[in-house]
Amino acid sequence: MRLALLREILANLARKPATLKYPVAREVTVAPGFRGKHYADLVKCIGCSLCAVDCPANAITMEKLPQPLKQNQRGIFPVVDYGKCVFCYQCVFVCPVKAYIVTEVFEMADHVIGTSRDISLSTIKGGGSA
């Protein structure tokens, strides 16, 4: 009878555990280019609604802008519902003006359903509203 795994088991005695102690130690990293939280940059967005039409999860709704923006003649902007979003990034890909800002943020579990409304609106202040 052979114990094929014996050497592997002995080697593991001296090794650190392969598992991570999340969330006690937040050492979880994702690969560069991870598809995380994304939101529209209203300085670039033209309100064409292509992202909302193509979204397979119906996670994007077009809402009225609180103030007129020069490049956005339609006066609407996309709001991503992160509770519905499947992070396929079709919206990022289809956007004709590359208005979506992508991040690697993946920790989005919360007791309220998050949307990209506030973070998108905060991009207006960054300039370009003239």
């Binding site: 690969a31 280019g33 991870f34 598809r35 992070f87």
Partner: peptide, 15 residues
């Protein structure tokens, strides 16, 4: 799984 994440941006759903 990490390699898949590196290439596509997610460890499960490649998309």
């Amino acid at each position: 799984m990490y390699l898949k994440e590196l290439v596509t941006g997610n460890r499960v759903h490649a998309d």
